[in-house]
Computed example of a mutant assay.
Amino acid sequence: MPIYEYRCQDCQGSFERLISFSERGRSQVCPSCESLRTSVQVSSFAAVGAASESRSLPMAPQAGGGCCGGACGCGH
Results as ranks from 00 to 15, higher is better:
P31Q: 02
S32C: 10
R37P: 01
A63G: 06
E5A: 14
S44H: 00
R24L: 05
Q9I: 11
E23W: 10
C72V: 05
L18Q: 12
C33I: 01
H76D: 05
P2T: 00
F45Q: 01
Q41A: 09
R55W: 06
C67L: 12
M59Y: 03
R17D: 00
E16C: 00
R17K: 10
A51D: 14
S44E: 02
Q9F: 13
G75C: 05
G70C: 08
D10C: 10
S54D: 06
G49F: 08
E23P: 01
R17Y: 01
T38K: 04
V42D: 01
T38F: 07
S52H: 04
S14M: 14
H76E: 07
V48D: 06
C33W: 01
A46P: 00
S44V: 06
R37A: 11
G66A: 13
S44W: 00
S20D: 13
S43N: 09
I3R: 14
P2C: 05
A47R: 08
S22V: 14
S22C: 02
G70R: 11
R24N: 07
E53S: 08
G66E: 13
G13W: 10
S44T: 02
G69S: 07
G70H: 05
S43E: 14
T38L: 09
D10Y: 01
A50Y: 03
S52K: 12
A46D: 03
C30Y: 05
L18G: 04
P58K: 02
E16N: 04
S39E: 15
D10N: 15
S20W: 10
S35M: 12
Q28S: 03
Y4S: 08
P2D: 01
F21W: 08
